[in-house]
Each structure stands twice: as structure tokens, then as C-alpha cells.
């Protein structure tokens, strides 16, 4: 790491090894990016849901609460200013709407930041792999 290697000096088997290594790194990073994207979407949709549904005018309205993905029970929305948020490892925290919104925004921004950090690294790996393929072709 940090040390430069001239690809053209490498033998075909070594190039193949390097190529496979980049392949698995790219695969790993791509799937990580996908999970980050998924997490971001969830935070955003939770935030949207919060702002759209948890309003004072919706207080007392009836809702259907999912017990499983196919079983719903009727309920009444009692308090539209308090929610419980899952902060991870089985801990839940009571928050009011503006605190909750802030929470989701913070999380979403954090995930976005992580993605922006990984994007150039991934791009660079793609480029390097392409370069390796090109060198391999000249050696065939």
C-alpha cells in the first residue's frame, strides 16, 4: 500500500491475481454502498412519514397498525407529539416530533457522508481494474 507498482512489469498470473483481488474489493464496496443507500432511504421515509402523519389534526384518528406484514389491527392515534425511536442494539428513546425529525436528518446526513467518502474510492478501484484488464490484454 502506498507503493507504486508498474503493472506492465507483472506477469500474467500476477495480473490475474491482482484483478481478482480488485474484483472482490469492488464487490464488497458495492454491496456496502447498497446497504448505505437502503439505510438512507429508510431514514428519509421515516422522516417523511413523521412529518406527514404525526400532525395535531391527525390526533384521535384511527389507524391500522401492522402486527406482521399481513396482519393489521385498528388503533387510535392518541399522542401525535411523541414517538419512540429505535436507536439500535435494542434501545428505544422517546422523542417529540422535532427531536425525531432532527434524529432522522442527522442519521441520513451521516449515511450520506459515508457514501460520499466511499464513492471516490470505488471509482478509483473501477479505474484500476480496467487498467489491469488492459495490461492483461497486451500480454495475451
Amino acid at each position: 500500500q502506498g507503493q507504486e507498482i508498474n503493472l506492465t512489469t507483472l506477469q500474467l498470473p500476477q495480473l490475474k491475481m491482482l484483478h481478482d483481488q480488485f474484483d472482490s474489493e469492488i464487490e464488497y464496496l458495492t454491496s456496502s454502498m447498497q446497504s448505505l443507500k437502503g439505510a438512507q432511504t429508510q431514514f428519509e421515509s421515516s422522516k417523511r412519514c413523521l412529518l406527514k402523519s404525526m400532525t395535531p389534526e391527525n390526533e384521535g384518528k384511527s389507524v391500522l397498525v401492522p402486527l406482521t406484514s399481513s396482519l393489521y389491527v385498528p388503533a387510535n392515534l392518541v399522542d401525535t407529539n411523541k414517538v419512540l425511536i429505535d436507536i439500535g442494539t435494542n434501545y428505544y428513546v422517546e422523542k417529540n416530533i422535532s427531536e425525531a425529525e432532527e434524529f432522522f436528518k442527522r442519521k441520513s446526513d451521516y449515511v450520506k457522508q459515508q457514501m460520499e467518502k466511499f464513492q471516490p474510492i470505488l471509482q478509483h478501484k473501477f479505474k484500476t481494474r480496467q487498467l489491469i484488464v488492459e495490461v492483461m490484454q497486451t500480454k495475451l
Binding site: 419512540l84 435494542n90 434501545y91 428505544y92 428513546v93 422517546e94 422523542k95
Partner: peptide
Amino acid sequence: ESNVYKLT
């Protein structure tokens, strides 16, 4: 003074 719950 926040309310914290643990899921058990």
C-alpha cells in the same frame, strides 16, 4: 430527563 427503554 429523556425516557429510554430497552427491548427485552
